[in-house]
């Protein structure tokens, strides 16, 4: 990773639900091909931050920049062009329950490309086989296990070969082995597709295994406490809250 071109820049972002401010003064940069971790305790606004980055929630103040383009100031066509380059894996998979896996993966392709049915079918099979689900094209989401739903969600997120992949709690609800396999898959995808990856998680094993950049959100001060490689944060940052988080509370005792 020699490239350090800034891909996503969060500038002076304030997130709020009505009058209730969740986080303020967020400033950080995600470089191309980073695996960027958004971490912090439960309920601190990690997923909310992601929702601001993918266009589901308007910031109370501040900007989300993709390259030089400010997402929330762009017109709807520009927004659509940016969103087309996103691949998002939601916490619960969020597969459309009335459609089969193949139809789920095919919908983004139908929406954004002029491919014919045969090409779409080939793409769908390829994407499903990448996540180890080939042969499950005709299944409905309710007919497969939670881990498989997550992988199918990933296949859908990858349908359009996105530039940015967002993961909301990818390993939540997965057993350790499946979680590890998902981590490996994320690494491989980054390396082979050259995508920038943004992961919301509080799973320490994943954080250290895949992250090369991160932001730590603190619900008490309602802002971020640190930015940087989680492995370096563990060694060099002396903020007790961060140490406590990264060491599973082991730093709590004096």
């Amino acid at each position: 990773m020699n490239k350090t071109e800034a891909h996503i820049t969060i500038s002076d972002l304030t997130m709020a639900y009505g009058d209730f401010v969740v986080m303020r003064n967020l400033n950080f940069t995600i470089n191309r091909e980073d695996i960027f971790i958004i971490m912090g305790g439960s309920g601190c606004g990690k997923s909310t931050l992601m929702r601001h980055m993918i266009g589901l929630k308007t910031p109370a103040k501040g900007k989300v920049l993709y390259g030089d383009v400010s997402f929330w100031d762009a017109d709807s066509e520009e927004k659509e062009r940016l969103m087309r380059r996103f691949g998002i894996l939601y916490q619960s998979g969020a597969l459309w329950s009335s459609m089969t896996l193949a139809e789920n993966v095919a919908l983004p392709l139908r929406q954004y490309t002029n491919m014919n049915e045969q090409e779409i079918g080939a793409q769908v099979s390829l994407k499903l086989s990448l996540v180890g689900l080939s042969g499950f094209e005709g299944f409905y989401p309710s007919e497969i296990s939670g881990g498989m739903q997550k992988r199918a969600g990933l296949a859908r997120a990858m349908a359009l070969d996105p530039e940015v992949l967002f993961f909301d709690e990818p390993s939540a609800g997965l057993d350790p082995v499946s979680a590890k396999r998902l981590d490996d898959l994320i690494l491989q995808l980054r390396d082979s597709l050259g995508a920038t990856v943004v992961v919301v998680t509080h799973e320490l094993a994943s954080i250290f295994a895949i992250g090369n950049n991160s932001v730590f959100l603190d619900p008490e001060t309602r802002t971020m406490l640190a930015v940087g490689d989680p492995n370096l944060l563990l060694k060099e940052n002396h903020d007790p809250k961060i140490q406590n988080f990264l060491r599973r509370g082991a730093a709590e005792k004096p």
Binding site: M83, R84, S97
Partner: peptide, 10 residues
């Protein structure tokens, strides 16, 4: 989150 998934596909 299925509706979110639609919205983020524009």
């Amino acid at each position: 989150e299925e509706i979110d998934a639609l919205e983020t596909l524009a």
